[in-house]
Design a protein around this nucleic acid. Structure first.
Lengths: 243, 243
DNA sequence: CGCAAGATTGAAGTACGTCAATTCCAGTGG
DNA sequence: CCACTGGAATTGACGTACTTCAATCTTGCG
């Protein structure tokens, strides 16, 4: 099933018509290699990108050459609805793993958003959640030490993955290198490495290849002060009103 | 003039009708003291708040008791359009200086946003800019040293203040204590103090009370790698299409 | 004038950075 | 089946930006 639909249904019940509209919009699907840009800073494309499979990242490259990763995108995430309104991209988005991306014509998205119905509200809701995630990352970078940063991220990606059906009972994919994690957390790869080692020693995280095994989610959340409220997975006013 | 209208006109030309709608929505104006909460984490209010005068900040209080400031709000900024859709606030907003705030009924904002016209697009544009600012702050916290963090913030607040007519030729108000700055930049007040002293010594910044004097903006921008593109002050597609 | 908030200072500690090597490992070709 | 390769992970020694704590000084303001 289209992971965007699955994600939006957390927020509001969608009609069959709504689902058909989303599916129709996402017909033009392309496969991308790992480390390929989906869209670049300065671009002004005529389509919006929806990630269907694989992971991607928002990033900026700083004058010194280092890369700052500002968000992870997983299946169901719209990469750049922004561009339907803004002049040009102020950052780039690139794949981290092999990926499948739907190219949706800009007018198509504008039409969906302009309908003023549950579907439009659900799309706006997903934009607001993205913003809330940014705020939480800001808290993390400003106020949490390296070990809690990593664990906090693991908690978040676990819940987000679960919401689109990408978790196993006790594990999920985290297809990131230590360097990518470091670029996200604002620390060096070397320190990232030592941090991970410590976390493994303390028995907080276990990995099998690029998969993270989570046998005590509560412990991880407690350790990193993780409060899931910012993900707004309970749904918003639309859902509550209906309930 | 209503600073929100002034801000939105950067993005799109508004009709007299549009302006009247905004002015009408912002009739219920209240005065607030400094350090007073406008809205608190967990709240689910029935109005949206528009800052008309003074400064405010988005913040979260962490379990350890420290405060993380995630955004500054100045006249023309909508505090929480989010709440029109989301279930409850995942953070708080409080004034930093004496302030004037318009309380706008939620339905009013929903009606404005649901019209699908230039005004609605302008409001969405302002939300997207807020998000872009968050991304840039994330870059700052993750990848810039303390001195550049402060200067980068000064550059941003200077441009944002200018956009709503709050700058003098060479100065603007920055009504923040060193502690508030520290809570924003993710450093301790002590280190904030030492950082400011160094910047003053190097002649990069000059202050008169809570006012920052800027006589060489170019130098500040160069020093902090400030690239104004993320503020999207050139306007978006609407404006470009019109030109 | 006097108070409280804010700004400033000093000394000592720590989390994280830097540089440069070395080891591990999945994938490839022979 | 193994040797080869390049990216990723890991290690060690050493440097530094920022923290911590606790005191003192300034300043706006009633």
């Amino acid at each position: 099933m289209n992971p965007l639909i699955r994600k939006l249904e957390q927020f509001a019940k969608l009609s069959d018509e709504d689902k058909r509209l989303v599916d129709d919009a996402a017909r033009d699907v392309r496969r991308l290699e790992p480390r390929q840009d989906i869209i670049r800073e300065g671009d002004r494309p005529d389509e919006v990108h929806l990630l269907l499979e694989g992971w991607a990242a928002r990033y900026k490259v700083l004058p010194g050459g280092e890369r700052a990763i500002m968000a992870y995108l997983i299946p169901g995430d719209l990469c750049d609805i922004h561009i339907a309104l803004l002049d040009r991209m102020d950052h780039s988005i690139g794949t981290l793993s092999p990926a499948k991306v739907a190219y949706i014509p800009r007018e198509r998205i504008e039409a969906l958003m302009g309908r003023g119905d549950d579907l439009a509200r659900a799309l706006t809701w997903s934009m607001l959640v993205d913003e809330a995630i940014l705020r939480e990352w800001l808290v993390t970078l400003g106020h949490r030490p390296a070990d809690k940063r990593v664990v906090h991220l693991i908690c978040e990606m676990m819940l987000r993955s679960k919401a689109v059906g990408l978790t196993d009972d006790d594990s999920f994919d985290l297809p990131l290198t230590q360097e990518e994690l470091a670029d996200t957390m604002g620390i060096t790869p070397v320190h990232m490495n030592r941090t991970l080692q410590l976390l493994r020693q303390r028995g907080l995280i276990t990995t099998r290849g690029r998969r993270v095994i989570v046998d005590d989610a509560k412990r991880l959340m407690a350790f990193s002060d993780f409060n899931p409220n910012y993900l707004h997975q309970e749904g918003g006013r639309a859902r509550s009103a209906r309930a």
